[in-house]
Design a protein around this nucleic acid. Sequence first.
DNA 1: ACACATCAACTCGTCAACTGGTTGTACCAG
DNA 2: CTGGTACAACCAGTTGACGAGTTGATGTGT
Lengths: 250, 250
Amino acid sequence: MFGATLLRMTFDPAPRVSVSDHVFGRLRDAIVSGRYAPDETLPGERELAGAFAVNRHAVREALRRLQQLGLVRVSQGGATRVLDWRVHAGLDLALSLARSGDVLPVETLVRDMLEMRACVGIDAARLCAERADPAVVAALVRAAEEYGDLAPDLDLMNKANIAIWRLVVRGSGNTAYQLAFNSLVAGTFAVGDVPPDARAAELLDVAGHRCLAASVASGQGAAAARHARELLTAPVTTPTSPTSGREARA
Amino acid sequence: MFGATLLRMTFDPAPRVSVSDHVFGRLRDAIVSGRYAPDETLPGERELAGAFAVNRHAVREALRRLQQLGLVRVSQGGATRVLDWRVHAGLDLALSLARSGDVLPVETLVRDMLEMRACVGIDAARLCAERADPAVVAALVRAAEEYGDLAPDLDLMNKANIAIWRLVVRGSGNTAYQLAFNSLVAGTFAVGDVPPDARAAELLDVAGHRCLAASVASGQGAAAARHARELLTAPVTTPTSPTSGREARA
DNA sequence: ACACATCAACTCGTCAACTGGTTGTACCAG
DNA sequence: CTGGTACAACCAGTTGACGAGTTGATGTGT
C-alpha cells in the first residue's frame, strides 16, 4: 500500500496521448467552445495536417471521430462543416467534454449529470421492480447487503455503489437506460471527484440502499422509485440553490 | 407529394457508404451481436484489412470509431480487445444500433428509447418551468400555438413536435438532457417510423402541448411535469404487452 | 442579357509501402 | 526459480500517389 501511494503521488501515468487524440481533442474543444461557429467550414485536411504538423491520416482519424460525435459533417469533395453540437451531438459528448473540461463550466456539467442520473435511476428502479429478472434481483440484494461492509472507504463504496446501480439499470431491461448510465458513469469518473460532501452523504446511506433492494425484490415499483429518489436527489438538491421542489419528500 | 413518394419508393438514398463505414458497421454488428465476446482479441489491423479487402487505414478509422464508442480498447503493441458494450458503451450506441438493426430487436429498442424519452422529457418539463429562460419560454409558447396548424400532416407534426421538445429540453438548462435528447431523436429517426398509431395519438394531442407550454410559461413545474407525463407515457404504455405494471397509474 | 453545358481547381476517399515504438513470449544464463 | 535478452507480432505514424466528387468560373448559344 505504501508503494502504491508513493507511485501514485510521485509519477504520472505517462502522458502518452496519440497524435490523432491530440488533434481530436483540440478540434473538439475549438468547436464546443464556439471558436468554430456552426455552419462554418473547417479548414481542409491538408491544411489542418500542416497546422498540427502531423500527417493527414491522423487528421482524418480525428475528423472521423468528430463526425461520429456529431460535431462536424464531412462530405467528399465539399468542405467539412461544423454542426451545432447542441442539436446534433449525443450524450457521449458529455464524457468527452468532462474529460478535458475548461470549455464548459464543470460544476454545471456535473450538476446536469447528477440530475440525469437521478431521473434515469428513479425510473430504472421502478422498472427493475416491475419487470424483474430473478437472477439480477438476487445479485442486487446480495450487493446491497455487502455494501455496508466497505463502510469507511468512500472510494470503494463509490465503486460498489456504481455496481449496485448498474444492476438496477440492468434489471430495468431498458437498453437505453443502460447506455445512458454508462455515459454518465464515465463522465463523472472523467471529471474527477464530484461534490464530495453531498455524494458522501448518499454513499454512506447504507440503509437506503438496502431499502431500495428490498423494494425491488418485493416487486413494489412505487416504493423502489421512492427510495431511489431519496438516494439520488440529495446530491443534486443539497449543494445547489433551493429552487428545486422539495414537495416530493413531504 | 406524389413525386416525393415515388422517389422514396423507387430510388434508394444512394448506397454511398464509405469503406471505413462499411468496416465499422460490420465490426460493430459483430461485436454487439456477440460474435466477438467481451475480452476476446480482435484480429490484427493487417488481418482485418485483408479480410475486408481494404486498406489498413480504413480499418484504423473504423477501429478508432469503435474505440470511441466504447466497443473495443486498442493498445499499441498489444492486441485490440473487445469490451462489454453493456458496460462501456454510451448512449450514442443506441443510434448506431438502430441505424442498422437486426442485431437487436428493434421493437424493444424503440420501446426503451420511448421510455427514456418520457423519463427525460417529464423532468425536463419540470425544470424548464422552474428555471425558465424567458426567451425560450416565449418561443415554446409560440411553437405550441402554431403546432395545431399542421393538423393533418403527421410528418410535419412530428418535426414540429421535436422542435417543441427541443425547446423544452433547452429551457431545462440541463446539457445532459439536451445531449440525451439528441441521441434519442437521432435514434428514433434512424429506426424509421416507430409505432405509428400510438405516436399519432400523441402527436395529434394539440391541446396537451398547449397545456404543457402554458404550465411552463406560468412556472408551475408540477403541472408541466404532469402534462408532459400524459403526453409521453401514452406511446409507451399503450402498444406494449400488458406485462408492465399498471399499479402506478391506479 | 440570360440560360446552360463544360471544364479546371479544389476537396475528400482510398491505397501502397515504409519506419519506428510497444507489447508479449520464448529462451537462456545464473 | 529469477533476471535478462532476443525475437516476433502488433499498433503508431509517415510519405507519396491516384481516384472520386464538388464547386465555381468560363465559355457558348439563344
